[in-house]
Computed example of a mutant assay.
Amino acid sequence: MEAVEGRSRWKALAAPLGLLAAGAAGVAFVGLVSPYEAGHYPVCPFLGITGWYCPGCGGLRMTYELAHGRFAEAFSRNALVFVMLPLAAYLWGLWTMASWRGTVVRTRLGSRAAIIALTGSILVFWVVRNLPFGRALAP
């Protein structure tokens, strides 16, 4: 019985560990293939159509800088995504532990207030980085 339980625990970790592996592979790829060189990655469709930065613009360059250990430069490329990384890591950790234990993740981050706060933060960042006084937030 214990062997089956142990095996099912590891099976339950397949999704969180798969996501971790995919994320690590993506970071490794971006770390090796510079987004600063033209032609390696497509232009952001929103930027290409409107000329304005979306909330994700600069994310590849931020990832590249993080992969090379340049944290200040990474922050300057996309401050919002940079600040959200610890939250994403925390949520991934909760998901992994819950999967291992066979429980459900319980957090207030899925509450209506948290979702409104996150959405509002993204929208404010999106608008401000495109205004003259918010140019420091542009990638």
Rank of each mutant, 00 (worst) to 15 (best):
V4R: 12
V4K: 08
E5D: 08
G6W: 07
R7H: 09
S8K: 11
R9A: 10
A14L: 15
A15P: 08
A15T: 13
P16N: 01
G18C: 07
L19R: 09
L20C: 11
A21E: 01
A21F: 06
G23K: 04
G23A: 11
G26A: 09
G26E: 02
V27Y: 07
F29H: 12
F29W: 15
V30K: 04
G31Q: 01
V33L: 07
S34A: 00
P35F: 00
G39K: 03
G39L: 02
H40P: 07
C44Q: 02
L47I: 01
Y53N: 04
C54P: 04
P55A: 00
P55F: 01
C57V: 03
G58I: 00
R61H: 11
R61I: 03
Y64L: 00
E65V: 00
E65M: 08
L66W: 06
L66S: 08
H68P: 13
A72V: 15
A72C: 09
A74S: 12
A74N: 10
A74H: 10
S76V: 05
S76E: 10
S76A: 15
L80Y: 11
V83A: 15
L85G: 11
L87F: 13
L87R: 07
A88T: 11
A88I: 13
W92T: 07
L94E: 15
S99V: 03
W100V: 05
W100R: 08
V104I: 07
V105H: 10
T107C: 09
G110Q: 01
S111F: 04
R112M: 02
A113K: 08
A113V: 04
A114L: 02
I115T: 14
A117C: 05
A117P: 05
G120Y: 00
S121C: 07
V127N: 05
V127Q: 04
P132I: 01
R135Q: 14
A136D: 09
A136Q: 12
A138T: 12
A138E: 10
